[in-house]
Each structure stands twice: as C-alpha cells, then as structure tokens.
C-alpha cells in the first residue's frame, strides 16, 4: 500500500490506481491516516531538503577559483619552450666564443676552433640577438597576461 501512496503523491499512478487510492481514502481509515502522514512528509522534504552555502563561503570560492584557474590554465602559452631556451642559450654562448676568437688580440686558447667565414658568424650573431629579443618579449607578454588576469585589467 505504501508504494501506491508514494506513486500517487509523485503523480505516477495510472487511472485505475488513482481510482483505487481515492476509493481507499474514503473507505479505509488506516490507509487514509498513512496517506496523510506520507503527504505531510513529502511536503516537509520538498520545502526543507535543499541546503544553501553561505554567501561568505561562496565569495571565498569565487576568489579561489580565479586563482586556481589562472594556475591550472595560464592565459599565456609560452611561445618558446624550455628546450628552445637551452638550445638558444648554447648558440648564444657559441657566438660569444666566436666573437672572442676573431676579436683584436684574441687569446691563443681559441685556436682549437676551426676557421669560419665572417659572414656566417655575423649572421649567427644576429639570429642569436633576435632569439634573445623573442624570449624577452615572450616573458613580458606572460607577465602582463598574469597581472591583467589577477587584477581584472583588460589586456
């Protein structure tokens, strides 16, 4: 009988079941009492079973989400990865050594380096300078994005 009562309360009874419940409500005192109790319980659950978080906690969570999202998904994707940085640094060091080898009064310790065309060296130096500028720009954009995100400033 209880399952029939809950089906009725939930509006899931077919017409026969509905008629049965309505008949029992008129004729069966025990059923009628049980129906009343279940309806009241249903009403109480409907009104009071939801819970709300406090406004303070909600605000705290929103702020925390901003920080966590910034950490988990950086706004700025690095153009140059760490391996590129290592490679370019090595190229930079190489360029400096070559520059020292061909400078006036260069030390004999650079003699182990084979002779290289001056144009190739110049070109290499410019490429190295270009990459250094690119790395710096990458870092500046990264920092800028981070600041604008945490402060809410538009980039």
């Amino acid at each position: 009988m209880e399952s029939l009562i809950w089906k009725y309360i939930d509006g899931e009874c077919n017409s026969d079941e509905k008629a049965q419940v309505e008949h029992l409500l008129k004729t069966d005192l025990h059923f009628s009492e049980q129906f009343k109790q279940s309806s009241e319980l249903n009403l109480q659950l409907q009104h009071f079973s939801t819970v709300e978080m406090s406004e303070g906690f909600r605000q705290k969570m929103e702020n925390k989400m901003i920080l966590e999202l910034a950490a988990a998904y950086p706004a700025h994707q690095e153009i140059i990865t760490i391996w590129w940085k290592i490679g370019l640094s090595l190229a930079g060091i190489g360029s400096i050594i070559l520059a020292l080898k061909y400078s006036e009064g260069a030390s004999v310790i650079f003699n182990f380096i084979p002779e290289i065309n001056a144009r190739i060296i110049t070109m290499g130096a410019w490429v190295a300078v270009g990459f250094v500028l690119l790395i710096s720009l990458d870092n500046i954009i990264g920092k800028w994005s981070e600041i604008s995100r945490t402060t809410g400033m538009m980039v």
Binding site: M53, E62, G152
Partner: peptide, 18 residues
C-alpha cells in the same frame, strides 16, 4: 571558465557550486 572569466565563474557557482 578556463580563462577565469568572472561571469562564467559566477554562473558555475550558481549552478554547479550550489
């Protein structure tokens, strides 16, 4: 949401946070 858009965060908290 991933970009930290404040409106999306509010919507997320309203619907899914609750």
């Amino acid at each position: 949401l991933k970009t930290g858009d404040s409106k999306s965060i509010k919507v997320f908290m309203d619907t899914y946070g609750r």
